[in-house]
Design a protein around this nucleic acid. Structure first.
Lengths: 259, 259
DNA sequence: GGTTATTTGTACGTATGTATC
DNA sequence: TGATACATACGTACAAATAAC
């Protein structure tokens, strides 16, 4: 037989790896959700019933449920009238996943700082334009609060910076834009911390925010976009000059100490 | 005591819900990965050892591992020299996760078709500009192949459509832009299928691609961006006119038959 | 090439939390 | 207020797979 080189005998060429039971169970339940046979709010039978329907043990079903819970498709409530339910999907979980994923990628050079900064600019500049055009009065109030709440000097200062940008994305009226941009913002933040002591930079940031807010209030889309562009150029130059955030010291002792 | 209305007695106001052991274990291991204490390729101790390090049972550790496996942070290999390993992260996996997540959101009205189309335009128009400015010769060859490979009439026609857009994003030189845009593209595609029989539309699409490619070849960034904008306006108008993709028929019989 | 040690996969029993009566 | 029923959470024992000897 000379067929080993290409992966095995012809009769076995098309087979696929054995997949663990918990994966197969997760796949089937996922398909039920995606196809619409199970809809948000639906309750699954108890773990024991699901287990006997699939012909596996409860532990296997539980692992499948964990997989789908991690993907935010299910959640579990313990107790008498608890159970496992199909999630009413919420973008925030996807946003968090994206942020951790991007964080890891940026740590492995699969994504560079330049790409993060460029992409942020690509997204936030049009977001500012949209916000000026579409913001509601409530969103305007929230933006003004974010700008004015900035305390003169404290390490919550960053919180207000982020809040301004988040509210602006919200005001753009495009939830997808917010979902994508927030993680990019978050990853950049995790790599660079502007110390509260840098009063000059913080003063410039807050003046920029004030200016953008004014243009958004006035409904000047092009003006808001241009002001945002200048704001980000300023920030980027600062980030580039700062160098990376200092790394945490190496861990001492074993990661998984035996007990 | 009159403190029940605001969530409980003052001394317990700051407490948080008990979190299941498997979640706490997953959180700690996730933190080790994100902080860099565990790096891609690292092997965790055996499930039994991890269990005793945390003081829980193996089942609990396994559920935690399933959570992190679903987030593509870990994978398991069974057998004597198997084990659980930290994943070497690859952007394509994150891209796939984003696409399924967006697909589900768009099915539940958490993301509208308009938001998908708007965001795509926001991303692909600058991507076309960047591609014209930065494309390498190899990328130009790939783009030309994608345009010219289009067969006159077949249901692989869509594949070439997608390939052109993917290659263009690649040519923009920003991997993050590609990572974010590809899922948006994919979700739109999953909601709308242009039948190969619509020769007029397909002809227009392919003529647009030809035009964009010419401008990218010429290094005309503004021209390429404008051509892409017109291309997407055309596509969007068509999508809007098509209405949603037909749903599969309802399932008959019980979803979880008892055995 | 079989034996064996080590690892993940699976089954099942017990503990614990929670709404209802 | 306590008893109870039923759900998930957790723990233990065994089976199966895999690579080295």
């Amino acid at each position: 037989m000379a067929d080993r080189a290409d992966g095995g005998p012809a009769s076995l060429r098309a087979v696929h790896r054995i997949r663990p039971a918990y994966e197969q169970v997760a796949d089937q339940i996922r398909a039920l959700i995606v196809e619409g046979d199970l809809t948000p709010g639906d309750r699954l039978p108890s773990e024991g019933e699901v287990a006997s329907a699939f012909g596996v043990s409860r532990g296997t079903v539980r692992e499948a449920i964990r997989i789908l819970t991690a993907a935010n498709l299910l959640y579990s409530v313990r107790g008498a009238h608890g159970g496992t339910f199909v999630t009413r999907t919420d973008p925030s979980v996807l946003r968090d996943h994206l942020e951790t994923g991007l964080g890891i990628l940026s740590g492995t050079d699969a994504i560079s700082l330049d790409e993060l900064l460029d992409t942020r600019m690509l997204l936030e500049v049009p977001a500012a334009r949209l916000a000026a055009q579409r913001r509601t009065d409530e969103q305007l109030v929230a933006l003004r609060e974010a700008v004015e709440a900035a305390p003169p000097d404290a390490d919550v200062r960053y919180q207000h910076h982020r809040r301004f940008h988040t509210e602006l994305l919200e005001a753009s009226g495009n939830r997808l834009l917010q979902l994508v941009t927030a993680p990019v913002f978050g990853v950049i933040r995790s790599r660079f911390v502007i110390p509260p002591s840098r009063r000059k930079i913080w003063g410039e940031i807050e003046a920029d925010h004030e200016e953008i807010l004014g243009l958004v209030e006035a409904g000047d889309g092009d003006g808001a976009a241009e002001a945002m562009r200048r704001h980000l150029v300023r920030l980027n130059a600062f980030y580039q000059s700062m160098g990376p955030r200092p790394q945490a010291p190496a861990r001492r002792g074993p990661i998984f100490p035996v007990r």
